[in-house]
Design a protein around this nucleic acid. Sequence first.
DNA 1: AAAAATTAAACAACCGGTTGTGTGTTGTTG
DNA 2: CAACAACACACAACCGGTTGTTTAATTTTT
Lengths: 345, 345
Amino acid sequence: MEENKHVTIYDIAEKLNLATSTISRALKDHHSISDKTIKKVKKAAKEMGFVPNTLAAGLRGNKTKTIGVLIPTVTQPFLSSLISGIEITAQKSDYSVIIMQSHDSYHEEVNMAKSLYSNRVSGVICSLAMETRDTSHFHQFSNNNIPLVFVDRVPKDYNTFRVVIDNYSAGYKATKHLIEQGCLRIAHLTAGSEFGNLYNERKRGYVEALRDHNLPVDDELIIDLKAVTYEEGVKASNKLFDIKPLPDGVFASGDIIAVSAVQTAKRRGLKVPEDIAIIGFNNDPISQIIDPNLSTITHPAEKMGKAAADIIIKNLKSAKNEDVQEIAFLNTEVLVRESSKRKES
Amino acid sequence: MEENKHVTIYDIAEKLNLATSTISRALKDHHSISDKTIKKVKKAAKEMGFVPNTLAAGLRGNKTKTIGVLIPTVTQPFLSSLISGIEITAQKSDYSVIIMQSHDSYHEEVNMAKSLYSNRVSGVICSLAMETRDTSHFHQFSNNNIPLVFVDRVPKDYNTFRVVIDNYSAGYKATKHLIEQGCLRIAHLTAGSEFGNLYNERKRGYVEALRDHNLPVDDELIIDLKAVTYEEGVKASNKLFDIKPLPDGVFASGDIIAVSAVQTAKRRGLKVPEDIAIIGFNNDPISQIIDPNLSTITHPAEKMGKAAADIIIKNLKSAKNEDVQEIAFLNTEVLVRESSKRKES
DNA sequence: AAAAATTAAACAACCGGTTGTGTGTTGTTG
DNA sequence: CAACAACACACAACCGGTTGTTTAATTTTT
């Protein structure tokens, strides 16, 4: 096994008896280099197996063509689709994606933000950790003209780009759908609503929909989960189904929760959707697997990823932000499947 | 909003009237710097908001504390768990993770390998694209002492680290389990077995198990999917269930396929597991959601990610590979759930 | 044919840490 | 008290591209 040292532009320059600056320019088709030379250089570069050193270029220009992604975890379907979208768009413009997981820990998020900064990423896409209240660790980006895009779980009070869905209207739509199916006592399973404005917004939509249709808002029917997990969902569902009279509809702020509600209901002998209609949120893969298939709200994860990456790349190209809006609202839809269908539409 | 230029060690040096070399060494507790100076420097660095520039350090030392991950996609549960494992281990040793998706395209894989090399990653973890036959695009790593670890979908003929499960024995175990449940006509749903040694190995285990138990191997009962998707699974299942006499057991080489088989069976009025026992592979989240719960083979994704990252980090620390084996086999187990349980154990 | 303009390539500084070598200052030892 | 080690820090080259400025060669303009 040969020990190739990396081939550099110096090696090419020496071989062709040209200056390194000429090599550098030739490789990027600079106008001040003749076609003849460009061809010669490119040929030699290929033959010698030259691969540019991104670090050197990044160091000089202080831009790395790298997008930093800081999210709670990559294993949630929504987030892995988000990454997928980011990565696809980034790739088209020759950007790399560097991913870090905060695991919903504020502390880790702070460290990782520093690490991204340290890596001189060209832009940052972030979905906040559950724990995060203070967002001052993102100032280092804002202060240095590094575009910052928050996605989905965004801070209330930070003046930067954000890509979100309209959680209020989605919550409203979901609830309205249940009402239209004839539900009169609709429960809501939510999470961490004391802070996360995301879940709060959905809840607000839920409440408004009830009010608009002259249905009572019963606080007993709103359960706040400790975490968005299957286990917590089962706990909450059991609590919910102990209430008399039983609710006849459930709007869960996440498919995992909805699924746990469906299964808990079935286990207790309740029929879905006849006894109880259930709708989730996100359109995770499981929503199509569970029996009955879960009605849900679409959440355009990949699109959001693409949009976020686009903002960063465009913002980078045109020093000043032109046609990119500060806030991109992406569309959501009610996906009616079996778990909530009581009437033919 | 102030336009902080990045704070460098030069700024610190100037402020404290010290040389940059002293700052650099002080920040990493070099023994040749007095405690007094170290404290002074660290204090100033903190006050001034100094964040080291990873690029500069990487350029000089030609090592970046970055692990490149090259996988087909991040959205498959197995792979996102793999990433999670890599990321957790990397983080402990202060490594960053840079992720690229080949989308199972050979062409993209080649480009991305180049990009990782260009980024001077310290090591590479890769699960091969479906399309990949030739692996010479990985030579650039091997030739330059950049540790390379293949995970799960590994090349046959490449002399480097690999982290895998024993697919043969897993396939054997799965099939044996079905036999023990009383199945006599066991089908096998596999994919891309004309190349991928991964699926081939499972199939080999399936065949051996049948032979060892004196059951016939019926080629008609082995169906090779075009892709590992739900839709292809449904197609294959329908084809399978058209065969007379019906198989009474199915070993699917993936949970998505198994799930599609379960649902297709149900749709056709077949009872799972009474009429047909089904076992999948991977222990994806859906396996616990589907009704009946899916028996499956555990696939220690996160552990494999941790193992792969460990290999890279250890290999980097000790120039020569000491206690790391070339091949790490991780353990798998049969997870008996409802979809295959015909007898009380 | 001389002046101006355009083109081609070289020179050299630069990005920001890292590290081998050198120098002056203390402290220890015989 | 000279001799030597140990210590604390400075100097400067280096990693590998990038880019503003110059110089030299060629072409166009007047």
